[in-house]
């Protein structure tokens, strides 16, 4: 069986949520084996990250190098090319780092690459069966990937449910000596933190969208809390902007932004044509409205007749519960 690795991202020693998801994805490829984690970085942060993985991964490859203090994809790629055994499968989270790293890495490794994988249906010989989506999620596809010379698989964040398994005691293996020379032609300079309110609703896969049904400016926070728990953004209909409860940049619709999320939660939105004109790409539309005759229910996939002011906090609690975060 090909060896499976998971590249684990951490920030300041705190491991990203995707670690458990990559673990679960690896188990879908090979239910009998356990993946090996690879963590890069430097110093105490790296150690902290590696140690926190020992309860779930059997083996953790620690790759320490000054130059890897900040995860510069170009340098990480060079390190991985030197470290990874031939023909292995590497799982990476399909986020801004995975998008930067994996395509080029697969070329340097001479292996196959599949991005943004949502489902893994198992391995048949050298053929890995995967599920993806196209056209912004409007259609799904099955993809077969030849892994005979290894593969890099980018996994969509959130697509794989973390497994509940008994804690184990993993081993941290220091692979730093095999890193080799690292030279970058792309140099990381700094990170500029977005200002609050700098939210680009066109870039989000999940939108919690509020309409006049939210009733008061104070209630906007109900949607914001849910969005935060989900990792989503809050958008709105025009009356909400008119009332100055939200910025114009959050308005969805013909005279606002066109969004193409995968999931759209319409909360207290009646479903006017001008509003729906901005919701493209056929997202999964969940409508919450207290009026059972609201036109939004004619276009929604799922409808709930309820008071948004009551329903949103309930849903927020559920999300937090699931994520194991105590409700604030």
């Amino acid at each position: 069986m090909t060896r499976i690795f998971a590249y684990i991202v951490h920030r300041g020693g705190i491991v990203d949520d995707s670690a458990a998801e990559l673990f679960a994805a690896a188990r879908k490829i090979d239910a009998s084996g356990l993946p090996t984690a690879i963590v890069t970085g430097c110093g105490a942060d790296l150690d902290a990250a590696c140690n926190s993985l020992t309860s779930s991964f059997r083996e953790i490859w620690k790759v320490s190098h000054e130059a890897l203090t900040y995860p510069n994809a170009e340098l990480v790629r060079q390190a991985l090319v030197n470290i990874l055994p031939a023909n292995s499968i590497l799982l990476v989270s399909h986020d801004h780092f995975g998008i930067d790293l994996s395509p080029g890495l697969s070329i340097k490794l001479g292996s196959s690459f599949v991005s943004d994988v949502l489902a893994i249906d198992g391995l048949e010989g050298d053929s890995l069966k995967l599920g993806r989506q196209e056209f912004g999620g409007q259609v799904s596809t099955h993809v077969h990937c030849d892994i005979s010379s290894g593969a890099v698989i980018n996994v969509r964040p959130g697509a794989f449910k973390p497994e509940q398994s008994a804690p184990i005691t993993g081993l941290v293996v220091d692979k730093s000596s095999t890193v080799g020379a690292l030279t970058a032609r792309r140099r990381y300079l700094e990170t500029i933190v977005a200002e609050a309110g700098d939210v680009d609703i066109t870039k989000h896969t999940v939108l919690v969208s509020i309409g006049r049904g939210i009733q008061e400016k104070e209630n906007v926070s109900l949607a914001e809390e849910l969005a935060e728990a989900l990792g989503a953004a809050v958008s709105c209909s025009r009356p909400v902007v008119d009332a100055k409860w939200m910025e114009k940049s959050r308005q969805v619709g013909s005279s606002g932004k066109t969004v193409k999320p995968k999931v759209y939660l319409a909360c207290g939105i009646s479903g006017a044509f001008q509003h729906l004109a901005g919701v493209k790409g056929n997202p999964f539309l969940i409508a919450i409205n207290k009026n059972p005759k609201a036109p939004i229910f004619q276009v929604a996939d799922v409808g709930i007749v309820d008071d948004v002011l009551e329903f949103l906090p309930e849903l927020t609690n559920k999300v937090r519960e699931m994520r194991g975060v105590a409700a604030k």
């Binding site: 969509r156 989503a232 995968k262 939660l265 999964f284 969940i286 007749v305 309820d306």
Partner: peptide, 23 residues
């Protein structure tokens, strides 16, 4: 969805996750 509020919330969460919407 015509369950209780709690059931509905559970169902919504499940659907959001199934649609790859949990980050």
């Amino acid at each position: 969805l015509d369950g209780s509020r709690e059931e509905n919330a559970d169902k919504v969460l499940e659907l959001v996750a199934a649609k790859g919407g949990l980050k």
